[in-house]
Design a protein around this nucleic acid. Sequence first.
DNA 1: CTATGAAGTTTCATACTTGAAATATCCTAC
DNA 2: GTAGGATATTTCAAGTATGAAACTTCATAG
Lengths: 168, 168
Amino acid sequence: MASQQRANAAAKLALRAEPITRHKLRLWLRLLKTSRAVEAELRERLRLAFGTTLPKFDVMAALERQPAGLTMTELSRFLMVSNGNVTGIVDRLVAEGLVVRRAHEQDRRSTFVCLTSKGARQFAAMAKAHEAWVGEILAHITVEEAQDLTALLSRSLRQDQRPAAVDN
Amino acid sequence: MASQQRANAAAKLALRAEPITRHKLRLWLRLLKTSRAVEAELRERLRLAFGTTLPKFDVMAALERQPAGLTMTELSRFLMVSNGNVTGIVDRLVAEGLVVRRAHEQDRRSTFVCLTSKGARQFAAMAKAHEAWVGEILAHITVEEAQDLTALLSRSLRQDQRPAAVDN
DNA sequence: CTATGAAGTTTCATACTTGAAATATCCTAC
DNA sequence: GTAGGATATTTCAAGTATGAAACTTCATAG
């Protein structure tokens, strides 16, 4: 197909004509749009189904695997939000009886934050729904594509833009 | 390599054992982490280099291609933020003389928002730097990978989680 | 015309977020 | 032991964000 080849060549030329950064800019805009859309959807569902918010859910999710708790700084680094921010979210969670602050034995500057049993119970229900929602929201993607995407995204930043995190 | 094959088979088995939603959840967490890292980096650079913020930059970017301006609702839908939010950001941009509100001739409920020439001038400088920064931040990714990622991300949501946007 | 509902914007209360400053504690080198 | 810097947290001001309510204007059915 000569016309097909011509079209192809033309497309390639058009792509070449674009500076490299243009592709990355496009990627960034798409990335931003996608994550905002998913985030908005999850936020609304959390609000309607559980009367809670995404930041609170995120903090509880980070705490869930740490029976011993996490310090404020560990939370802040893991969630990639400022330290002052974590203070407010944890304050509200404490007021709701979902987490507690516990003294750090060796270092009196630090405080551990842990889920209460009420918090753990509530989080279990939310996490189950949350995973199902993500499945719904990303329904139009196959497992293979999801794996490819995850791998590409992991590679995209690397070596490290941000100060070391607790991470997993 | 028999051991290699065994390892491979074991890995595949492990993957199969995971529910589909688990992969999507992992993807979502990676997506969120990546976009937060990029966003944090861009926010800081905008602040240091231009003394401005990401939301203001986003509004100006949306306005840049529309000499006739955009209405508040169009802005809100395009940026995927609430209408009340746009009011505040535009108020601050107006106070800085970077945008103006203009009456809508046919519909007195609406107002158009447009860049001033000062705003356009300032945005041009910021946009140039911004594109270069995105290039730096996403340095570890090839153009091909960027294109793949963009395509996969575009496909991932589709058919539409969110109310119609102005979009491009 | 005119009720009635829809659409565009702002206002409001509340929550989230940041970066910087203030406090308190820790650690290390004298 | 103590001065100095480093680390952990909170506080603060300002900006960003939401969802709901209030207000205005528009469009349309009767």
